[in-house]
């Protein structure tokens, strides 16, 4: 059994939290640059210019890209032949707390009823998948509340099929309008169960914006949803324009013969995530 020290994991998590909140991923930045060139609405182009300037400024000053540094969400792929001495969850949480404290990141976690801030952004939301081998991969995502609030899960009837899925996704983005900071990125989970569909929808947001799904049928579905959403004309910040959505990423899983679970996880343009492998 391979063993990794908790301090090593904590330090890497703290670094990721600080770095992801101040440096926009390269693929997201490229997509914003392409969008500035392609958008035909002047109000929309002005938004893209501001977002690119904001990204430069955040990188230079180390001010967070967005004041909403999110709840800290972690997707962990953990080999069955590796362990973290002192505990994986504890190491991740300690790293997150240090990263948010030392990076001057906003602590956005509160009690759901009293609304009292927990003060240190705890707890982290941690999803673990066990994998063969002895590798450990930790992906971190800063998930802001504005876009998360516009996300939805539904249980469609199997007869509704692709048409029902498409209608639900497009209508969700239409109803969200300017609220989630468009242009958005959509993580779409199709199948699984009531809790599994949103889990894979969110994980799909970790993919590179310019990748192509290896399954050509799913790649075509992603392209169709992207075109459907962009036809809405909501545009950057809801000011009208060609680009309402930067990318759609679909994750699918088999589901019950009675069900067609569907989750739409809306992500704002400030798609902050990083990963580290041990």
């Amino acid at each position: 059994m391979r063993e990794i020290g908790a301090a090593e994991v904590s330090a890497a998590v703290a670094r990721m939290c600080r770095s992801a909140n101040t440096k926009l991923p390269d693929d997201v930045r490229r997509k914003l640059e392409e969008s500035l060139a392609r958008e035909t609405s002047e109000a929309g182009r002005e938004i893209f210019r501001q977002l690119l300037e904001n990204a430069d400024l955040a990188f230079k000053t180390k001010l967070p890209l967005c004041q909403d540094c999110g709840l800290a969400v972690f997707y962990v792929e953990m080999g069955e032949d590796v362990r973290v001495a002192g505990g994986l969850n504890k190491a991740i949480i300690e790293g997150m707390v240090a990263g948010y404290r030392d990076g001057f990141l906003r602590k956005s976690s509160c009690d759901p009823m009293t609304r009292r801030n927990t003060g240190d952004n705890t707890p982290a939301i941690i999803h673990v998948d066990l994998t063969p081998g002895d590798k450990l991969k930790i992906s971190y995502m800063a998930k802001g509340g504005g876009s998360e609030n516009m996300s939805r899960v539904t249980m469609l009837a199997p007869s509704q099929g692709w048409k029902g899925i498409k209608e639900f996704v497009v209508r969700r983005v239409a109803e969200a309008g300017p609220n989630p900071c468009p242009p958005v990125i959509l993580g779409v989970g199709i199948g699984g169960t009531f809790e599994y569909a949103p889990r894979i929808a969110k994980k799909a947001l970790l993919r590179k914006l310019d990748d192509t799904h290896p399954d050509p049928k799913i790649a075509a579905m992603e392209a169709e949803l992207l075109a459907g959403v962009n036809a809405l004309g909501i545009g950057p910040m809801g000011l009208g324009g060609d680009i309402t959505c930067l990318a759609v990423k679909i994750a699918m899983a088999p589901c019950h013969i009675a069900s067609l679970p569907l989750a739409v996880n809306v992500q704002c343009h400030s798609a902050r995530h990083e990963e580290v492998e041990f």
Binding site: L51, E53, N54, L57, L63, M237, C268
Partner: peptide, 13 residues
């Protein structure tokens, strides 16, 4: 008034 969402560093200035 609307300000640009996700431009928190820029607006901070």
């Amino acid at each position: 008034f609307g300000a640009t969402g996700g431009a928190g560093a820029l607006l901070s200035m």
